[in-house]
Simulated assay, not measured.
Amino acid sequence: MSDNKGPGGTPEPQEERRTHDRVVGTPSPAAEKQLLAVDEDPAPAGAGAQLDEDAAKRAERIVALFFLLAFAGSVAFIAYYIGWSGRDGGMHGIFRARESNFWLGGTMALSFLALAIGMTIWVRRLMTSAPIVQERHELQSDAETRAAFNQEFLEGAEDSGITKRPLLRRTLLLAAAPLGLAPLILLRDLGPLPEKRLRHTFWGEAVKKAQAEGKKGVRLVVDGTNKPLKVSDFASPGGMITVLPEGVEESHHALNEIAKSVTILINVPADQFKPAKGRENWHVNGIVAYSKICTHVGCPAALYEQTTHHILCPCHQSTFDATDAAKVVFGPAARPLPQLPLAVEDGYIVATADFPEPIGPSFWERG
């Protein structure tokens, strides 16, 4: 064990070796080094300090202007949401989505931004700052403490200007009121509830129109070409094609109606086809039609396996048996794909009625 030695090999005195040791409980030397300069005698303006009243009036008008701008932005948001967004298929329509997002987002952003700017100017120009020190005592405050709190509260209210500047108070309440209603208005975005609208598609409307003209039903047209489909055009077993009701593109809300009416047509070998009870005449020589909307969460059930005659939804692998009324054989879907009744008229494949049950996910029909 070596001895501590000073210069020249002489032993270092014990007292000198301990001069650098810090005694427990003493302040750290690092406390003397400050990263930021601190005023030794800070003198911030206290609550209720006098302001330049002319400058304060100008700031008050500017803040009120921003509050009014926030009010206008929130009112424009609500007006657009209720009014203009309901045109041409509503805000959920394909053509209106970008426009709706722009105006709804822009007006709401304007409202919040104007409100934030107004509050910032209010704090910076119309309020003074004073340090508040709260000492920890017993939970129950004595009368003197309560009186002091009451005095400080009143001074703070006076300092904020909320009591002596009615213009700011009124415009702030005016700007905040529509923002409080905005969440209630946005609840509409969770819907609207489909109610019974999904119980009927354009197939039913088109069939009624065709039967009123003395026809058996509405013709099936190929999606993309709108060409009416003949039995001879779809005579090869194992094929699948997407079809729509004739005239759907001329409807008022064409894209929405197409989305609900889209149907897959499958040619199942007649010897393997097992029609459900009461639906023996719903096919044409094994040609059968099912809704293309998966009954799980609404994805397109657009894949068909010819060897097993299974319809597959690629989203969550729900699988339906095309030979057995599109019953579920695998996956999370809860019910079969709705089937469309078919017939033949003048060589064309026609639908004689709408889908007998609601199309799409099972939870939709509970609306």
Rank of each mutant, 00 (worst) to 15 (best):
Y348I: 01
G347Q: 01
G46I: 06
D233S: 11
G161I: 10
F202H: 11
E246V: 05
E16C: 02
T307E: 14
L173C: 03
D52W: 03
F149W: 09
I162C: 03
T120G: 09
L220G: 08
D233C: 10
G89C: 02
R136E: 15
D271E: 13
A322K: 04
I62E: 13
G89L: 01
L113M: 10
R61K: 08
A72R: 00
P245D: 12
K292E: 14
L193D: 14
A302C: 10
A343P: 02
H253S: 06
A351Y: 02
V328E: 09
Q211C: 04
A79M: 06
P178G: 08
N4E: 13
S291W: 00
L340Q: 03
L193T: 09
D21W: 06
D142T: 10
P356S: 15
D233L: 03
L69V: 13
E152N: 07
L265R: 01
L340E: 09
A259C: 06
E155L: 12
S318G: 12
A177M: 05
R17D: 13
G93M: 05
D324S: 13
D41P: 01
Q306A: 15
A322P: 05
K33E: 15
A130G: 09
A59L: 07
G217A: 03
Y304C: 12
V133R: 05
F355E: 15
F112I: 15
Q14K: 03
A182G: 04
S232I: 02
T295S: 13
K5T: 10
T323P: 06
G106M: 10
F273L: 12
V262M: 13
G8R: 04
L69K: 02
E144I: 08
